[in-house]
Amino acid sequence: MKKLGNTDLQSPPIIFGGNVFGWTADEKESFNLMDQFLDMGINMIDSADVYSRWADGNEGGESERIIGKYLKDRGNRDKIILATKVGSSMKQGGPKDISERHIMTAIEDSLRRLKTDYIDLYFTHWDDNKTPVEETLGAYQKLIEQGKVRYIGASNLSAERLKDSLKASIENNLPKYEVFQPEYSLVEREKFEGEIQQICRDNNLGVTSYFSLSSGFLTGKYSTLKDTKGTDREPFLKNYFDERGQKILKVLKDISDHRNISQAAIALRWLMQKPDVTAPIASASKTDHLRSFKEAMSMKLTEEEMNNLNEAST
């Protein structure tokens, strides 16, 4: 377990991504997944108010609703660190919004769906690039004072807006983002490495990476772009099958064959051994996919293996 930034929250080695609930995992399978990963010691779930809006027939909020039903059915809210997000539009292609007015409405919707009276970690999901950072943080201050939110985090903010937010926290005695959630994986490194990474390091922010398995690309399930045709993942994977992507898959396969463990476990372990990453977020749509989580938590990559993965993904 690792401490998330300056909070008193202890993150498990892998955080379960709740984006699959109501999308590639129906309610029954979602309940089974939550039972199993909790048994494994993975006690943190990352969701968002818009998950899983993109599935046919969905309107958003499906993930939170399923989690809420589960928490009520099992009576285990106190055993779970619950993270969710605000800022996206429930309408496909709708505007981002992190104004106080939107946040104060969205939190009530999320709490109702989740059947809880507090969120452990509440994220700014996307920036609207117009709301003053002081207004957003002021809204969070009210929610913290009301006991509806314990800590706040940010995802997908630019380096400039993240710095402005951290500065405003100090100068105006407002809540500070304690966790940053970037897209980060063997395939997508530049969105985190560099300036954002340094800001997180300088401010002791916890880091929870999303798309850690690049929408399944790093699991080895798909060898060519043709393999993705007609799948739910096709829109997310279309840009990965270039020369660099193939190099990454080859190194993953080499280590996988040598170690006799899954490629997904290796990709997760690479993130777990990155010093600035607190824990990667990963999801699974079937319970047997959780095997790679167990493998990742019970092995360590050698320095040579880390170097080979770094080289292939540069």
Rank of each mutant, 00 (worst) to 15 (best):
L137N: 11
H258L: 13
M44E: 12
E135Q: 14
G5T: 12
V20S: 15
L218R: 10
A264V: 14
L218D: 05
P175H: 10
K176L: 04
T24S: 08
Y151E: 08
E135I: 13
Y118K: 11
L166E: 06
L9P: 07
S52W: 06
F180D: 02
S223L: 10
E108I: 10
F180P: 00
F192T: 13
T7F: 07
G41E: 08
R53E: 12
A312F: 02
Q246P: 00
S52Q: 06
K148V: 02
T219P: 03
F21C: 02
V20Q: 12
E304Y: 11
D232G: 09
E100Q: 03
S209L: 00
L162N: 08
I14S: 05
R244A: 04
M1P: 10
R189S: 12
N172L: 14
M104S: 03
S212K: 09
A282D: 13
A139I: 08
T314I: 05
T116W: 11
F217C: 09
G220F: 07
S47P: 03
E234V: 12
K85Q: 07
E29Q: 11
G22H: 06
Q92A: 15
Y210W: 15
L114D: 11
V179N: 05
L111Q: 07
D232H: 13
L157M: 15
H289Q: 15
P235V: 14
G153N: 09
A267V: 13
K130G: 14
G68V: 13
I119P: 00
F31Y: 13
T287N: 10
I107F: 06
S256F: 05
T24I: 09
T84P: 01
R161S: 07
F21T: 05
I281G: 04
A106C: 06
R77F: 11
S214G: 06
M297W: 08
A106P: 00
A25S: 15
D276V: 09
V149G: 00
M40H: 05
L157D: 05
L205Y: 01
T7Y: 01
T302L: 05
E305A: 11
K163C: 01
R244S: 07
K130H: 13
S52R: 06
P182F: 06
T224L: 02
I42W: 09
I170N: 09
T131S: 15
S185D: 07
N239F: 07
Q146M: 04
A282N: 05
D202G: 11
G147V: 14
A168E: 01
F211Y: 15
N239P: 00
A83L: 07
M90G: 06
R269V: 05
A55P: 04
A296I: 10
A284P: 00
K191C: 10
I119M: 03
K226E: 14
D242L: 07
E27P: 01
N172S: 11
D8C: 06
L114P: 04
G153V: 14
G68R: 14
T314L: 13
S169C: 02
T208L: 14
S99H: 03
D232W: 10
S155Y: 04
A106H: 01
G87N: 10
